[in-house]
Design a protein around this nucleic acid. Structure first.
Lengths: 189, 189
DNA sequence: CTTAGTTGTTATCCACTGATAACTAGGCTT
DNA sequence: AAGCCTAGTTATCAGTGGATAACAACTAAG
């Protein structure tokens, strides 16, 4: 029989995961602490007690998502330490759609100084990790992140990924251009 | 002596502009209709009366921003119809920081079906406009938009643009990589 | 001057939300 | 079994925000 009561650390972890799920949908201002609480099966005041404020809960969610993203990249680099392989890892990130979504909401909420600082920190860590793992140049990493941000935005708009809206011609064109480049045979290969 | 009372159409335009400014800071859920009203110097209920709902006001703001972005690209293409010139136009967009910010908040708020539909429409128009103006391939346009999204996100995080935070090494590296590619002399030139 | 239509306001409502305080209950140690 | 710490709850509040309704004031036509 599973323990009914968790330690504060365990509950904190569980709440951070729930926060990722909840904030991924409607963002910082659009999500209530009660949404997160219900998702985790606890009362709303307890969420505030554990994290101190909604702001800190959101920061925890962003850091939780960023840590998972880093892990996915690290796992990919384990297979092969180049940008192409890390690019394939984006498929996993797009499958776990909450991760990139919550990061995007972090970008959007960066006008709050505390959130902005935390989000910049997470983004910087990911940037440096990619460079360290692959040894790519600044320009290559920039292009890689550019495509990544485009994918993130397209996923948020439900143009790609699970739950995508019926495709318009331009959507198929962009989606196709991404798939083509990632899977195209080597020139002359 | 200037007219004190505006026609509904004029006031609507003015409110849309104010909405861009207001929503650019805190996004859809984080901005009150009263913020927009005060910025335009009218009462909050009047804003609702003119637009029907906060949702429609936000959609109007997104469309207003997208139209201005299209105009900037069109003006740039007037000078020279290639991606490099349109890339330079990003400097203007980053200077008018509200435009890209409100679009980003639109992406983030796309889980609302009405907003999502409007935002996809705007994005699709911009995509097609870029292709039509420059004749670029789908892959080139994708890369162009990728860098664009990266710039948009970096601006939202206050890593680049006006009001940027003190630079960390990784920030200088990314910012440098963008500037370098845009201004570098032709190979062998 | 009067009437009518449109621009705009004030007053008000109700639902929601983050946060606090006070209380309850499970579980470990002695 | 008694006591105590920690996990969790219920009750409650003060502020906010979107929306409605009723009213006021400017302007133009006849």
């Amino acid at each position: 029989m599973p323990r009914t009561r968790l330690t504060a650390a365990e509950r904190g972890e569980q709440l951070a995961a729930a926060a990722v799920q909840a904030f991924a949908v409607s963002g910082y201002a659009g999500t209530s602490t009660d949404d997160v609480a219900r998702l985790a099966g606890v009362s709303q005041p307890y969420v505030i007690r554990l994290f101190g404020s909604k702001q800190r809960l959101f920061v925890a969610a962003v850091q939780h998502a960023a840590a998972r993203i880093e892990q996915v990249f690290r796992d990919a680099a384990e297979r092969s330490a180049d940008l192409e392989t890390l690019g394939e890892a984006y498929d996993e990130l797009l499958a776990e759609r909450d991760l990139l979504a919550v990061l995007l909401h972090g970008f959007a909420a960066s006008s709050d100084p505390v959130i902005g600082s935390a989000v910049r920190d997470c983004f910087g860590r990911i940037y440096r990790l990619i460079r360290e793992l692959t040894g790519a140049s600044a320009e290559e990493t920039r292009d890689f992140l550019g495509i990544g941000m485009l994918l993130t935005v397209l996923a948020a708009m439900q143009v790609i990924g699970p739950g995508a809206v019926p495709a318009q011609p331009w959507m198929a064109e962009i989606a196709g251009s991404i798939h083509d480049t990632c899977t195209e045979p080597e020139p002359g290969g």
